[in-house]
Design a protein around this nucleic acid. Sequence first.
DNA 1: TAGATTGTTAATCGATTAACAATC
DNA 2: TAGATTGTTAATCGATTAACAATC
Lengths: 224, 224
Amino acid sequence: MKRVKVSNNVIRRLPRYLRKLDELSANGVSRISSFDLGQQLGLTPSQIRQDFSCFGEFGQQGYGYNVAALRSQIAVILGMDRGFSAILIGVGNIGRALMDNFCFSEWGFRLVSAFEIDPALIGTEFKGVPIRSMDELESYLAENPVDIAVLSVPKDAAVPVAERLTADGIRAIWNFTNVELTGPDSDVLVENIHFSDSLLSLSYFLSERRDEQAARDARAEKQH
Amino acid sequence: MKRVKVSNNVIRRLPRYLRKLDELSANGVSRISSFDLGQQLGLTPSQIRQDFSCFGEFGQQGYGYNVAALRSQIAVILGMDRGFSAILIGVGNIGRALMDNFCFSEWGFRLVSAFEIDPALIGTEFKGVPIRSMDELESYLAENPVDIAVLSVPKDAAVPVAERLTADGIRAIWNFTNVELTGPDSDVLVENIHFSDSLLSLSYFLSERRDEQAARDARAEKQH
DNA sequence: TAGATTGTTAATCGATTAACAATC
DNA sequence: TAGATTGTTAATCGATTAACAATC
């Protein structure tokens, strides 16, 4: 299926489409046009049709798109049917929040094990997922090849643990530490969740709004 | 300072610059050229100079950029010196992880209060931040204008609570729920942390890698 | 001074939007 | 059939890269 190189922007929009289609399904909507979908997502109909056309022809002239069919096509494009396996490294606050709240299976992933250094947690289970010692990491991965590692260790441990995972043959890291792992290095995929980057972007936009408001107020004041 | 409209892409890179500059500082590096900075971030020197030039002239010909000075300029651009206030809505797993782990003050924010519906938590404090009842939300905000709300409530509560916050005069929402709040609506800023979107992007890239590898293997097999 | 590196203008590249024939 | 809406090609727009004079 995937022959042409698809741009990053397109790929980042796919999960949003998926989410919106799930919402439409839940509301009993079974078909939708690129026009209506665009309205709901703040995108142009053109862009939506262009995006989908990277992967095939999922619509029908005069009709639009079948919500359920489109949803399942996008799920396949995203690899949700591949049953990727995941391990979680570091059962601290964020690690525990993920194990407890985040439904890996909903997105096609299997969380097969967690790893920790805290002896109090090692050997226990959390929501059916066993927590192993970091010492067992290599032996575990040798026996159970794993696709992605969820990295939720303290800042200082981030780089050494990431290097260790790379050496152990992990293919991708989902990085929750606030550390830049993406270097000019290896062929391990890194996807970052940088809370601070997100908050600082928001901070920028908020500052901008404030300045605009202040400028308007100043003009109004002068006029008065 | 900010007169021209700066593109989203530029703004999203600013926090990365900040993070890298902090790292350089910590390693005792006091000056850096756009060339070297580009190397370390995987960007072209041109792009870096273009990005900075949106906001002013922070470098010096023949020398490069002073790390500490550039860092503090970017901090100001991002609004880190404005002391924005924040409240946290929903002290569940993610909410608690944020209160415990995420250092709001490091990024110039003041976390002034949390709000919950669980009676067991109401009235307690967590890391010096009081946890109030959701019933007090309106009266609190009336007395203490707050800039941003961190939304970490269960999925079903996301939309109604967001609407309530909007009505209460909040200026921005940092959204940790997996719900699309960005509609064709109000003038409240929304910044999303969508875990699943991030994981699904990673899933796509991983699938792509797999397919490429499989294609290579198939070719090698045929040749053999 | 000579070498290095900026800030900025111009050129290129890529992504988004518009338009429209094809067709359900 | 007529109306609607797709998939796709062409046009536009914006972002990235290259080049270079200015200057520390």
